[in-house]
């Protein structure tokens, strides 16, 4: 069908400053766009409501120089990923493969080559729920300004949460977010008042909020800063999905282990696909501290990671699935010999 996108205005921002002033001028009518792989689909399907106005002005931030930089700072031992870097660029980066294999693994598991070639890091972190009620104009769900959640009484066997349930029970769709969070990343955000930094741990909101992130309508991500993990860190990302390709996760786990010889001195374990936000399994992290990891320890830690999860009527199987991906990711991380260790 032709012209499924309604008539709208479009501007290319050439700098952060320009994007900021356009957002200030157009307010709620405006929306930033870079790859557009998520946003354009929502627009075509007229997914909107009292709390989700249809954009009338698109501000392209994809070509702003600071947002397209992917650079490893040797002195600071930190990777800076511009928000408009594509998932393909990130996945294929030699330095990412060498020092942050977890990120590369997570990127390669996202959607399809065509989406990864266009979809950006910022867009991946800010993507809207992959919930078939949210993405159907006939349902006026809580996230769009309606009341309640049709998924609770409806079909929720796949892309829905078992943990952190609130008004909305979608599971967060990002594969990249757990990986970046497990590495202790920090976001740089452009806002009306300038720029601010915030730990990725504090970026996502709970299921009682209309929006998934702390970003206001006049804010956007400029870059993600990823500190280089300790020399003896090992890491892995494991994703389970219905089909081996082109699918969102039923459950995923990103694990970073800091090792001293055979002993795990610290870890970060973040789950995807199981809660309305990337879920950090603090209890499980604590359990791994100062342990010698073997299959048994990994299995028990994984069961702990499921924590107080309850699940919904049709998705309780994801409790077990969550434990499986955590166990597999811990064991895969243990087996991973990152080049950085040499």
């Amino acid at each position: 069908m032709l012209n499924e996108i309604p008539r709208l205005e479009h501007a290319d921002a050439s700098s952060i400053e320009e994007a900021r002033s356009l957002l200030a001028a157009y307010g709620e009518k405006a929306k930033v766009i870079a790859g557009g792989t998520d946003l354009l689909g929502l627009i075509k399907d007229r997914i909107s409501g009292p709390k989700m106005p249809m954009p009338e002005v698109l501000i392209n931030i994809g070509a702003i120089p600071e947002l397209t930089v992917l650079r490893y700072d040797e002195a600071r031992q930190s990777l800076r990923i511009g928000a408009a870097v594509t998932l393909t660029q990130l996945e294929e980066s030699a330095i990412v493969r060498e020092k942050f294999p977890l990120i590369s693994q997570a990127c390669s598991s996202v959607a399809t080559p065509q989406i990864r070639n266009v979809g950006t890091v910022g867009g991946n972190l800010c993507q809207r729920p992959w919930c078939w009620y949210f993405r159907n104009a006939a349902f006026n769900c809580f996230k769009k300004g309606g009341e309640g959640c049709d998924a609770v009484t409806g079909e929720h066997q796949y892309y829905f949460s078992v943990n952190g349930l609130g008004v909305c029970v979608m599971s967060h769709p990002s594969d990249l977010a757990p990986a970046l969070m497990a590495l202790g990343s920090e976001l740089e955000i452009a806002s009306k008042s300038g720029s601010k930094r915030i730990a990725l741990d504090r970026f996502f909101l709970g299921a009682r909020e209309v929006h998934e992130t702390i970003l206001g309508p006049d804010e956007f991500i400029v870059a993600v800063n990823v500190p280089c993990p300790a020399v003896a860190a090992r890491m892995a990302f494991v994703k389970n999905r219905i089909r081996d390709t082109w699918d969102f996760s039923l459950a995923s786990a990103a694990v970073v282990l800091e090792m001293s010889g055979a002993v795990c001195t610290g870890s970060r374990i973040v789950l995807g696909g199981l809660a309305p936000f990337p879920y950090r399994a603090l209890d499980a992290e604590e359990m791994l501290r100062n342990s010698r990891i073997d299959k048994d320890v990994a299995t028990r830690t994984a069961q702990k990671a499921a924590g107080k999860a309850k699940g919904l009527r049709m998705n309780k199987y994801k409790l077990g699935l969550g434990a499986v991906v955590v166990r597999d990711a811990i064991l895969a991380a243990l087996a991973c010999q990152a080049d950085m260790r040499r």
Binding site: H10, D12, I33, G36, T37, G41, L58, Q114, N117, V118
Partner: peptide, 21 residues
């Protein structure tokens, strides 16, 4: 995927890329 074209050598879905981009 039937709308796939190459942009700067990379496969993209042309149905979900604005021509201005």
């Amino acid at each position: 995927g039937t709308c796939t074209v190459l942009v700067d050598g990379r496969a993209v879905y042309s149905c979900t890329m604005l021509a201005v981009h």
